[in-house]
Design a binder for these strands. Structure first.
Lengths: 246, 246
DNA sequence: ATATGTGAAGACGTTCACAGCA
DNA sequence: TGCTGTGAACGTCTTCACATAT
């Protein structure tokens, strides 16, 4: 049961599916797409192995082998019956499907703790994503150096940066109150995908993808689960033991 | 040599559903639970308003009114037909459902950039989550002060901290290689919910919830979307214009 | 009159089980 | 024989449309 999403404010666009990947021409179902990065990551971690069965790979990814096979078959037949999958071939196919042959420039909005952390160490540089700009609304911070070769730039430069670098992915790491306006500016500048760390519901035009990452939400979901679990202990039929059941 | 054999982390637990909320006694469907934090957040942001219709609230949350009503009805009848929902009542009902009447202690493992950022500013303190411990594997850092009233503690103290504070939620902010072992230790200590920032697939016993938050994954999904979008422009039937459609 | 709450229908996602290929 | 690839069965989630309550 994957995924989380959200958004809104008076809806001025049509039906709006948040992550209705299939907006146009993808043969890959949305739910499958959500798992591809995991498969790729696991495959990248496999060294000294050149073949894997769906059973083995599925175990490493915590999915069923049937699901893995169905997911992979959506990208074409990259396996060999009776044998399994060639690790390198599969890895390449996944990387291609995800569009990772080339690097993706990314622009970050918000120079707070999170924004800075992202622009520096995080998994950005690691996997083909390059931060090409870091902007902040606080004029006083313009010019402040960040990491190796970045400098905080004013919001006014946002559109210019996006256009010059042909960047299509933006990260919002601002306070929630500013998030919607930033999203609007990113979209206006040509961004088609937004990674939103602000705890706010964003409304964007059809065709723009938004991935929400909110700590508060995640913790609340865990709290919910913990509470359910506790309740279950006093409700469940036959309070046999403290075990987990299978 | 083929196959994974020796490498594989043979799964020792049963089927394992990643976020099978309904493990035991919840009347709330899993997909609904995922949206509750959003509803709550939006309601908390509503001031100077004491009534709201499903239509209005749904627009603010970017869901359909039908979905909102169905979701809310899973928690009982908190609305009034012909009128709408009382904001305060609904807010309280949601907070109760999510288990937010009381604070939740949280333990953080990993004192890197992310771990420190989390322990300090992030949305933790804000919404009823209190960091009661921050442990790190690097012994040299033991004792290092963090924020107001935290100090980095050694891994060996993890179980003690969890038990003393009756903490059931843990955060993993370690390098991926250490994640599984940390998860095992957390589970052994009594944790039932894990927020995992490490790009690794965790295997946990049935009944323990894991929420993965991985930057790389999110960016890859956005890249995938961007690529699909680009492809669509050259594939879509009748390349009429560059617009988004309604 | 108006907006909630909910069965029923439909869309979507997962699992099963086996046909097909190496 | 062994494992992939996939139609068909099954289950879950969403949407529809209206009965129901104020």
């Amino acid at each position: 049961m994957p995924s989380i999403t959200a958004t809104a404010r008076v809806r001025q666009f049509a039906p709006v599916r948040r992550w209705g990947v299939n907006a146009a021409a993808s043969r890959v179902p949305g739910s499958t797409a959500l798992r591809l990065p995991v498969y790729l990551r696991v495959l990248q971690g496999m060294r000294d192995v050149d073949r894997v069965s769906s059973e083995e790979l599925a175990a490493l990814c915590n999915v069923t082998s049937a699901q893995l096979r169905k997911d992979l078959s959506a990208l074409g037949s990259h396996g060999t019956r009776g044998v399994g999958y060639d690790v390198r071939t599969l890895r390449d196919a996944l990387a291609t499907e995800l569009g990772l042959q080339h690097d993706w420039p990314v622009v970050v909005v918000g120079g707070g703790n999170l924004g800075l952390a992202l622009a520096n160490d995080a998994g950005f540089a690691s996997r083909g994503f390059r931060v090409v700009g870091l902007v902040d609304a606080d004029m006083l911070r313009t010019g402040e150096p960040v990491g190796r070769d970045l400098v905080i730039q004013p919001m006014a430069d946002l559109a210019r940066i996006v256009r010059r670098t042909r960047c299509v992915i933006g990260v919002i790491a601002t306070p929630p109150a500013a998030a919607q306006q930033v999203a609007d500016e990113l979209v206006a500048a040509g961004i088609t995908g937004i990674l939103n760390f602000a705890p706010a519901v964003l409304t964007v035009p059809e065709g723009v993808a938004v991935r929400d990452v909110d700590l508060g939400t995640e913790l609340q979901l865990l709290a919910f689960h913990a509470q359910q679990r506790t309740n279950a202990r006093f409700v469940g039929e036959g309070s046999t033991d403290g075990g987990e059941d299978a």
